[in-house]
Simulated scan of single mutants.
Amino acid sequence: MVDTLGDFEVALNRTLAGLDLPPVTRALVERTVGKGSEHLIRSVLAHQLALPEVTAYGRVCHGRAEVLYEPAWLAYQKHYLDINGRFSDVYPGVIAGLSACRARGLAMACLTNKPLAFALALLKAKGLDGFFGHVFGGDSFERKKPDPLPLIKTCEALGTLPAQTLMVGDSENDAKAARAAGCPVALVTYGYNHGEPVRAVDADGFLDTLNELADCSSIGF
């Protein structure tokens, strides 16, 4: 729903600067997001610590990324909350698509691997919070997507059967969770899919804009 790549980039680079590490590239962030903030931090640290300009000064040792993880995670949370939504934009068609679903009386929930506090603040900042009866983050359940548990629990909260609950996502991560939970899944074509073509993912349909949710007959809704 929201292009948050700018938020990730700024928060990560402020975190890395505090650790005296080189800034992350936007391309790396795009390939790495989607599996939760913990995974993002670990992946970025491992990548940045392996850069030639870092290893040339002998700053890398075995387990260095793990040593830096806790201070990096704490700093990242602070920086992200400070700038949450300031460098992000709602994708075109999102408001229209959500409004169309609400007009049809469809119950909606937001399920993300982003920490719940981040998600709630972002939805409010972008005026999207009023569309969802439930919001769940990556820390709301014992496991994250692509594990099916968060999606199964979301269906329970909505009072719907998985087979009758459409999962709308933007990556293979979302599709795997939906398949494992027994939900039909549609993927938007404009999000982040770890650098891979999203149309190659096993899904029931693809949306170029959420406004296409006004007519979901092509995937049985």
Rank of each mutant, 00 (worst) to 15 (best):
I152Y: 04
H134E: 13
A181I: 12
E156S: 15
G130K: 10
K176F: 13
F136G: 04
K176L: 15
P184Y: 07
G138W: 03
A175N: 03
A181V: 12
G159A: 10
E172Y: 01
P148F: 13
L161D: 13
I152H: 10
F141A: 07
V168E: 00
E172P: 05
S140T: 13
K144W: 08
A178E: 01
K145I: 09
E142V: 14
L151M: 15
G130M: 08
G159V: 04
P150R: 02
G137I: 09
T160C: 14
M167F: 15
C155W: 02
L158P: 03
F131D: 10
A175P: 03
G169Q: 00
V135E: 03
D174Q: 02
A178K: 04
E156T: 09
L151Y: 02
K145V: 04
E156K: 14
T165K: 07
P146R: 02
A181E: 10
I152Q: 15
V185F: 01
N173L: 11
A181G: 09
G169W: 00
P162R: 11
R143I: 11
T160V: 06
L158G: 02
V185L: 05
L158W: 12
D129N: 11
R179Y: 11
A181K: 07
G133S: 14
L149H: 08
D170I: 08
G127L: 04
H134S: 14
A178H: 02
S171R: 01
I152P: 05
F136D: 02
D129H: 08
E172I: 05
Q164N: 14
A178N: 03
D170Y: 02
G138I: 06
A163H: 13
G169L: 03
L161I: 09
P184W: 02
G127T: 09
G133F: 09
A177D: 05
E172R: 15
K145Q: 06
G138Y: 01
G182R: 07
V185I: 14
G138E: 05
C183P: 01
V168F: 05
E142S: 14
D147T: 12
A157S: 15
L158R: 03
